[in-house]
Amino acid sequence: VKVFRALYTFEPRTPDELYFEEGDIIYITDMSDTNWWKGTSKGRTGLIPSNYVAEQ
C-alpha cells in the first residue's frame, strides 16, 4: 500500500470510480494499470486517475 495526496478534486463518471477532493489522502492498493489505480479514501474504495495524485 502506498500513500498519495489528491492534487485535484475528482468527480466519478462511473460507479467504479472514487470521488475525492483536493488534499485528500488516498491509500493505493493496485497500480497494475498505468492510468487508473485502485485506492481507498474516507472508507470508500474505487478507481482513481493516476495523474490526479502525488506520492507522499
Score class of each variant (00 low, 15 high):
residue 47 L to E: 02
residue 38 K to A: 08
residue 26 I to R: 00
residue 48 I to R: 03
residue 19 Y to V: 04
residue 23 G to Q: 03
residue 25 I to R: 04
residue 38 K to Q: 11
residue 34 T to C: 13
residue 6 A to P: 01
residue 43 G to L: 04
residue 5 R to N: 04
residue 50 S to I: 06
residue 5 R to Q: 09
residue 10 F to L: 05
residue 55 E to P: 14
residue 46 G to F: 03
residue 39 G to L: 02
residue 44 R to N: 09
residue 43 G to H: 06
residue 16 D to K: 11
residue 46 G to R: 01
residue 27 Y to N: 06
residue 32 S to M: 08
residue 33 D to H: 08
residue 36 W to Y: 07
residue 21 E to I: 08
residue 4 F to K: 01
residue 42 K to Q: 13
residue 5 R to F: 14
residue 18 L to F: 03
residue 19 Y to P: 13
residue 14 T to M: 10
residue 48 I to Y: 01
residue 3 V to R: 11
residue 17 E to N: 03
residue 23 G to T: 02
residue 18 L to W: 01
residue 15 P to F: 08
residue 10 F to T: 07
residue 51 N to V: 09
residue 3 V to K: 11
residue 52 Y to P: 02
residue 21 E to C: 08
residue 6 A to R: 01
residue 43 G to P: 01
residue 42 K to L: 07
residue 36 W to K: 03
residue 41 S to N: 12
residue 33 D to W: 04
residue 23 G to D: 05
residue 28 I to P: 00
residue 11 E to C: 15
residue 26 I to A: 00
residue 17 E to K: 08
residue 26 I to H: 00
residue 24 D to V: 04
residue 50 S to E: 03
residue 27 Y to T: 08
residue 12 P to L: 05
residue 23 G to W: 05
residue 13 R to F: 07
residue 44 R to S: 07
residue 36 W to H: 03
residue 31 M to G: 04
residue 40 T to H: 14
residue 43 G to F: 04
residue 13 R to V: 08
residue 52 Y to F: 13
residue 24 D to P: 01
residue 1 V to R: 11
residue 46 G to P: 00
residue 12 P to K: 03
residue 51 N to H: 14
residue 2 K to M: 11
residue 37 W to H: 02
residue 50 S to C: 12
residue 14 T to V: 08
residue 32 S to G: 08
residue 25 I to E: 08
residue 23 G to A: 03
residue 41 S to E: 02
residue 40 T to W: 15
residue 4 F to W: 09
residue 44 R to G: 08
residue 27 Y to W: 11
residue 29 T to H: 14
residue 11 E to W: 15
residue 13 R to G: 10
residue 17 E to C: 09
residue 31 M to N: 07
residue 56 Q to K: 10
residue 49 P to A: 05
residue 6 A to H: 01
residue 14 T to Q: 10
residue 55 E to N: 07
residue 33 D to G: 09
residue 15 P to D: 13
residue 34 T to A: 15
residue 48 I to P: 02
residue 54 A to Q: 13
residue 7 L to T: 04
residue 25 I to S: 05
residue 40 T to K: 09
residue 31 M to W: 12
residue 28 I to D: 00
residue 55 E to S: 09
residue 16 D to T: 09
residue 42 K to V: 03
residue 7 L to E: 03
residue 13 R to T: 14
residue 48 I to S: 02
residue 27 Y to L: 12
residue 38 K to T: 14
residue 5 R to H: 08
residue 41 S to G: 04
residue 39 G to H: 02
residue 28 I to H: 00
residue 1 V to E: 11
residue 4 F to E: 00
residue 53 V to W: 03
residue 7 L to S: 04
residue 24 D to L: 03
residue 43 G to E: 05
residue 35 N to I: 14
residue 5 R to T: 11
residue 46 G to S: 00
residue 10 F to N: 08
residue 35 N to P: 07
residue 20 F to C: 04
residue 36 W to F: 08
residue 30 D to Y: 04
residue 56 Q to A: 15
residue 6 A to E: 00
residue 56 Q to D: 14
residue 36 W to V: 05
residue 38 K to F: 15
residue 8 Y to M: 13
residue 39 G to T: 02
residue 16 D to L: 13
residue 21 E to N: 08
residue 23 G to E: 03
residue 44 R to M: 11
residue 41 S to K: 05
residue 19 Y to M: 08
residue 1 V to M: 13
residue 28 I to C: 02
residue 17 E to I: 04
residue 1 V to A: 13
residue 37 W to V: 02
residue 9 T to R: 11
residue 8 Y to A: 11
residue 39 G to W: 03
residue 29 T to P: 01
residue 55 E to R: 09
residue 29 T to M: 09
residue 53 V to K: 02
residue 33 D to M: 06
residue 20 F to Q: 00
residue 15 P to K: 12
residue 24 D to T: 05
residue 56 Q to C: 15
residue 34 T to N: 13
residue 15 P to S: 12
residue 18 L to N: 01
residue 25 I to Q: 05
residue 44 R to L: 08
residue 39 G to Y: 02
residue 14 T to F: 12
residue 25 I to P: 04
residue 56 Q to Y: 15
residue 38 K to D: 02
residue 49 P to L: 07
residue 26 I to P: 00
residue 34 T to F: 10
residue 46 G to D: 00
residue 43 G to T: 05
residue 6 A to Q: 01
residue 46 G to L: 02
residue 19 Y to R: 13
residue 8 Y to T: 07
residue 35 N to L: 15
residue 4 F to A: 05
residue 16 D to A: 13
residue 17 E to G: 11
residue 23 G to V: 02
residue 49 P to D: 04
residue 25 I to Y: 10
residue 4 F to S: 02
residue 18 L to K: 01
residue 44 R to W: 05
residue 4 F to Y: 14
residue 20 F to K: 00
residue 53 V to I: 10
residue 49 P to R: 07
residue 29 T to I: 13
residue 5 R to E: 06
residue 3 V to I: 14
residue 14 T to Y: 12
residue 53 V to F: 07
residue 54 A to L: 13
residue 3 V to F: 10
residue 27 Y to P: 00
residue 56 Q to W: 15
residue 45 T to K: 09
residue 40 T to N: 11
residue 8 Y to H: 10
residue 16 D to R: 09
residue 20 F to V: 10
residue 28 I to S: 00
residue 54 A to C: 13
residue 39 G to M: 02
residue 44 R to V: 11
residue 24 D to S: 05
residue 2 K to F: 12
residue 13 R to A: 11
residue 41 S to L: 15
residue 6 A to M: 02
residue 51 N to A: 13
residue 50 S to N: 05
residue 35 N to S: 12
residue 10 F to I: 04
residue 32 S to H: 09
residue 29 T to D: 08
residue 40 T to L: 09
residue 1 V to Y: 14
residue 8 Y to V: 07
residue 10 F to G: 01
residue 27 Y to H: 08
residue 9 T to N: 11
residue 9 T to H: 08
residue 23 G to L: 03
residue 46 G to N: 01
residue 46 G to K: 01
residue 9 T to F: 05
residue 23 G to P: 00
residue 12 P to S: 07
residue 26 I to E: 00
residue 3 V to P: 08
residue 21 E to H: 09
residue 36 W to A: 03
residue 15 P to C: 09
residue 10 F to C: 04
residue 56 Q to N: 12
residue 55 E to G: 07
residue 37 W to T: 00
residue 12 P to W: 06
residue 46 G to W: 03
residue 52 Y to V: 07
residue 14 T to W: 11
residue 10 F to A: 11
residue 45 T to D: 07
residue 29 T to C: 13
residue 35 N to H: 15
residue 8 Y to P: 00
residue 17 E to D: 09
residue 42 K to N: 15
residue 18 L to E: 01
residue 10 F to V: 07
residue 4 F to D: 00
residue 24 D to Q: 08
residue 52 Y to M: 12
residue 51 N to E: 11
residue 45 T to E: 12
residue 26 I to K: 00
residue 3 V to T: 11
